[in-house]
Design a protein around this nucleic acid. Structure first.
Lengths: 122, 122
DNA sequence: CGGAATCCGAGCAGATACTG
DNA sequence: CAGTATCTGCTCGGATTCCG
């Protein structure tokens, strides 16, 4: 099914909801951290700098609910919980990387526009 | 932990800032509306359903500052202000469309995961 | 018509403390 | 270690009003 065929799809809401996930400050950082392999809770907390454990908990729960990551509990003392990217999560990370590439390419350009805009509106 | 210490960490802030723009509820809708051609303020307000004029004003200002859209004033009575997508804005819209395609393709999949997750955690 | 300025309520994010 | 619970502040976004 090609989205480009119809100008305004019925699932615009669903799409923009997913876009807002992508734009979320923590979601992407967690996904990126998991691209390299499985991580545990506090490992992620360390790797994703500046995140509170509550935000990490919430982010992980949302991602798990959406099927982007898998949560595996190894019953032991101390308890170990591993998070891994599902195929769907990997798929997302690839798509996001394209957007990130675009952002990296055009970052300087955008920055220049801002400086000029700010200068004109001083 | 210093973000810049990580590989590719130099533009992480800039990139994630752009990602947050993409995830913004209104930004994308405005860009999409402008893909079809120039629009005026109240035209956009009508086309992007549910947006307040303050949010539209803010969104347009940010997009103009970033060089995504161009603002052209036709001095007349009543005043006419036209907004158009710049090449950079078009470029962004193309990249976002790829993400939107991904979202459309996987929306059902995600929805299924959610239903199952909610059922398990009932 | 195309905005700018102000006020205000809701929701999200952080810090902290506690639990299995 | 891996969370949960609570409280709080603070930003976002909407409605309203006013200006050129």
């Amino acid at each position: 099914m090609d989205v480009t065929a119809r100008p305004e799809g019925a699932d615009c809401r669903g799409v923009s909801e997913i876009l807002s996930r992508v734009g979320d400050k923590w979601t992407i950082q967690v996904v990126v951290a998991l691209r390299l392999g499985a991580r545990r809770f506090n490992g992620l907390k360390r790797e994703v700098g500046g995140i509170s454990q509550q935000m990490l908990t919430r982010t992980l729960k949302v991602l798990e609910r959406d099927g982007m990551i898998a949560r595996t509990v190894h019953p032991s003392t101390p308890p170990q919980v591993e998070y891994t990217l599902t195929p769907l999560g990997h798929s997302l990370s690839e798509t996001v990387r394209q957007l990130a590439d675009w952002a990296a390419e055009n970052r300087q350009n955008i920055e220049d526009h801002r400086l000029r805009y700010d200068a004109d509106h001083a």
